[in-house]
């Protein structure tokens, strides 16, 4: 089974992932003009993290963002991992109920163009472990 057995395992990968997106020049360039923040809630591990794309500056952190994120993605670790590795289609996961969105989804949709690069950074972060 894909995913993570413990919160600590996932947090270690996410910390590398967040460091990766923060130093990615490609993501910084692609998010010029975009102002979106996303909060992630991994329900089975009770784990939260967040990402922010603020006009060319990408940041992220463990836990909930302050002020709160503009949009939220709630799922389990297996579905999250599957989406980031490309094994699970996000739209299908949402239809099946394995993934829930809330908040300002029209802003979050603007991040679709960045998804492939983010997935690659996530896969690299996983491989590093």
């Amino acid at each position: 089974m894909a995913g993570y057995e413990t919160k600590e395992q996932m947090q270690a990968v996410i910390e590398r992932f967040l460091a990766g997106i923060e130093k990615s020049e490609t993501l910084a360039k692609m998010c010029k003009g975009i102002k979106v923040s996303i909060g992630y809630e991994i329900v089975d591990l009770d784990f939260q993290f967040h990402t922010e794309f603020m006009d060319g500056v990408v940041t992220g952190g463990i836990g909930e963002a302050s002020p709160p994120s503009m949009a939220f993605l709630e799922t389990d670790s297996e579905t999250f991992d599957g989406m980031m590795t490309g094994e699970i289609d996000g739209a299908s996961a949402a239809m099946s109920g394995a993934l829930s969105f809330s908040g300002d989804m029209s802003s979050a949709m603007g991040l679709q163009a960045l998804q492939d690069d983010m997935n690659q950074i996530y896969r690299d972060a996983k491989a590093e472990g």
Binding site: E41, V43, F72, E74, S100, F101, S102, G103, D104, M105, S106
Partner: peptide
Amino acid sequence: TRQMLGGRRL
């Protein structure tokens, strides 16, 4: 509102 509801927020 431009706010969708889902998951525990819903």
